[in-house]
Design a protein around this nucleic acid. Structure first.
Length: 312
DNA sequence: CCTCACACCTGGGTGC
DNA sequence: TGCACCCAGGTGTGAG
């Protein structure tokens, strides 16, 4: 469940269940799902077992559950970091729910919540591009809250280089627009660059570009201020609308913490719509190879515009 | 520095 | 049926 709306659906679902809950046990069934865990930070299971979560927090596509109490030997706070990669899921189940029902469960946490009692947290990940880790929390560079869900100005060290997402109140439109101007690359690459703006992936990049009528390969620096601003607005709109519809689910792989799908796939205008008529002009949408994957766009509405200065 | 190709994985779908 | 090949919501790394 990978882009901002899908990760936010998971965060919002986890928050009431994990906040205040204590981890009673940890089972790692596949150590490859700890690719982001630094072994020098200590054994993953040992670092999490017995800990209490204080919140569920998200920036972009990164999710973390801060641990309420720092370890005795260290003064710094840390968090259970979660990234879903391409195929990760976090499912909340009744204690004793069979693992086999949920596909490849890579890690299971048993939680004890003061009000809700015992429940199981299943980290499922087909392709193992996602991972869990224990990571230390560091100060944010701008002094604003690290992400949605925690008012403290802290982020996991592995998230410190990730830009704020466009739904974050502390996101700086001006800084983002200025950074586009200095980029020597196409606009879609810039939208997907999580150090410039986070939370946007292949689906919502294509949707935002379609809505703003911008070609994916348009050099980022050649977008007018007005066009760049419009694109940012469309990105916000599509993320917010997808979130309101529970995210995009093409199959059972992308679900909320209860295993339910989102509905935004019915609202897609461009992504995966190659061959179908453009909802705006009626001409056929196309798919083109891009960065080892695909771009979907309308060749009529989204033209590549080469500035006169660069023509020769 | 900056940009880009590639590696990291599994499984579903398609066409021969 | 078998099997090669293409495809998939992401990110970190290292070459150039």
């Amino acid at each position: 469940m990978p882009e901002l709306p899908e990760v936010e659906v998971v965060r919002a679902g986890l928050a009431p269940a994990v906040t205040g809950a204590t981890v009673s046990s940890v089972e790692v069934f596949d150590a490859r799902s700890l690719r982001r865990h630094d072994p020098t930070a200590g054994d993953f299971a040992a670092r999490v077992t017995g800990q209490r979560f204080s919140a569920a927090v998200r920036r972009g596509k990164f999710l973390w559950l801060p641990l309420a109490d720092p370890p005795e030997e260290s003064p710094s706070f840390s968090a259970l970091l979660v990234h879903l990669g391409m195929s990760g899921q976090v499912l909340l189940r009744e204690a004793g729910a069979p693992l086999a029902d949920d596909g490849p469960v890579r890690i299971r946490l048993m939680l004890q919540h003061p009000e809700h009692g015992e429940l199981a947290l299943h980290f499922v990940d087909q392709r193992i591009f996602g991972s869990m880790a224990v990571d230390r929390l560091v100060d944010t560079s701008d002094g604003a809250p690290g992400g949605l869900g925690d008012s403290r100005a802290l982020v996991p060290s592995q998230v410190a280089h990730i830009a704020r997402d466009p739904l974050d109140p502390a996101f700086s439109d001006a800084a983002f627009l200025a950074s586009l101007h200095g980029k020597n690359t196409g606009i879609k690459r810039a939208l997907l660059d999580q150090t410039l703006i986070s939370g946007i992936g292949n689906i919502y990049a294509d949707e935002a570009l379609w809505a703003a009528r911008v070609h994916f390969a348009q050099p980022a620096a050649t977008l007018s201020r007005r066009k760049a601003r419009a694109l940012l607005t469309e990105a916000r709109l599509v993320l917010a609308k997808a979130l309101a519809e529970g995210g995009t689910s093409f199959d059972a792989q992308y679900v909320n913490v209860n295993g339910a799908s989102g509905y935004f796939s019915h609202s897609l205008n461009a992504y995966g719509q190659q061959g179908k008529p453009c909802p705006r002009c009626g001409r056929a949408l196309v798919r083109e190879a891009f960065m080892n994957r695909s771009s979907h766009f309308c060749p009529h509405c989204q033209r590549l515009r080469v500035p006169r200065l660069l023509q020769s």
